[in-house]
Amino acid sequence: MGLLSKKDAKLITDPLADNNPITIQVLGICSALAITAQLKASIVMALSVMAVLGIGNVVISLMRNIIPSKIRIIVQLVVVAALVIIVDQVLKAFSYELSKTLSVFVGLIITNCIIMGRFEAFALGNGPWKSFLDGVGNAAGYGLILIIVGFFRELLGSGTLLGFKVLGDSVKKTGLYAIGYENNGFMLLSPMALIVVGIIIWVQRSRNKALIED
């Protein structure tokens, strides 16, 4: 188990910045926005997608030479659906409240464009190890955006991170609340997720001029 070769390492680092699935490839937006009001939900969703995408990429890559081209979408859907059912059952078993928070969005991982997108773009044409790395890398890029959005939404919206009151107690008026700071309840509502992602895109493209559309 040596270090990954340079090319393999690129498979993981590229989606974290320059080829980010959400902000550059424009995939996987739906679930990125809806469940990020809590940081914990974002982390769990990111890990679920990583599991499904990593294992799914390997399975499709192993089968890539025997899938007839006409039914490949159906085969991909079946593989993803089966993996998502497993993830959903695991979540329901070990973390029931969180699975209620995520509700239908665990099921919607099936239609998460990142998964089908990476199957088509990578797993169908590459070997299993590389596909696994690509899957993990893209899921990591997706997870990074989710965590950033979840971080700001939870911090500014309820003054907590992962449930811990980091800005002080809003009831007893300790910490930051003592000088009059109030939680921005609006951050917990859905439209702010869109605007936070827009700002992330703004920051990313300002730093890397090559990504600007014309």
């Binding site: 809806a34 509700s103 009831v171």
Partner: peptide, 27 residues
Amino acid sequence: QVETVETPTVTEVTEVAVEVEDTKELA
């Protein structure tokens, strides 16, 4: 049946207080 994230966040994390009531009302 479908609880959107806003309500659990607000009820789980904060106690009953004026600003919380407002946020809860909004949500």
